[in-house]
Every structure is written in C-alpha cells, then in structure tokens.
C-alpha cells in the first residue's frame, strides 16, 4: 500500500465518521422536525461518502459513480416527502416541535 493511497483512505475515513457522528448527534439531541430531517440527510451523506471510498478501494470507480448518483436522487425524494410531512405537521401544531407528535399511543 503506497503512502498516497493510505492518506486518501484515512482522510475519507475521518470525514465519514465525522459526518456520521454529526448526523447521529443531530437526530438524537434536537427536538425540531427540520433538524431531524437534516440529521437524516447527514447520515445518508456519510454513507454516500463511504460508497465513494469503497469504489476507490476496490478500483471500480465507474460503477460506484452510477450508484452514488442514484443514491443522491433517491435521497432528494425522501427529503422532499419528509419536508412535505413537516409542513403539514407545522400547520396542525403551529410549531415544529417533535414532541407535538405523540397523539398515537398504546
């Protein structure tokens, strides 16, 4: 393993873990629906970065390129649907507090 290769691997690994921890922290700590969605997006970004790294390591960058673009498209659709639900929830509750979503129990 050459030094250059190892350095790219480490840099990518560091940022993947950083993004993942940020996303997880964001989802666990904040009580705002929009922030929860942003945390989710951060987590997906971390996985997308992992996909790029995997493509680099296994030497199949062209396949992973296609995969990463597909993941980005799907993730945008998820974000749009989540945003729509958040908007509707805001209209019912007049705030974006996630604690407003506890009508269903049992």
């Amino acid at each position: 393993m050459s030094g250059d290769y190892w350095q790219i691997f480490l840099t990518f690994g560091f940022f993947i873990i950083l993004t993942f921890v940020c996303g997880l922290y964001c989802m666990l700590v904040s009580r705002n629906i929009i922030r929860a969605i942003i945390g989710l997006e951060l987590l997906i970004k971390a996985v997308t970065l992992l996909m790029i790294l995997v493509g680099y390591v296994s030497g199949r960058t062209s396949v992973t390129q296609a995969m990463v673009i597909t993941i980005i498209v799907i993730e945008v659709v998820v974000a749009v649907v989540a945003g729509g639900i958040a908007l509707r929830s805001f209209r019912y509750n007049d705030n974006l507090d996630i604690r407003g979503l506890k009508r269903l129990k049992g």
Binding site: L43, I85, R88, S89, L101
Partner: peptide
C-alpha cells in the same frame, strides 16, 4: 401525518443500515 413521519424516519434509518451493508 404523525404515523407517516414515524414510518419515514425509521425506514430511512433502516435504509442507511442497508446502504452501509451494501457498500461493505
């Protein structure tokens, strides 16, 4: 809306697990 949001969040987390696994 509430049921859908809960499903969305948990399903997205499941998706992240699946994608990580696919990458590995």
């Amino acid at each position: 809306i509430e049921g859908s949001f809960k499903y969305l969040i948990l399903s997205a987390i499941a998706t992240i697990m699946l994608l990580t696994s696919i990458a590995l």
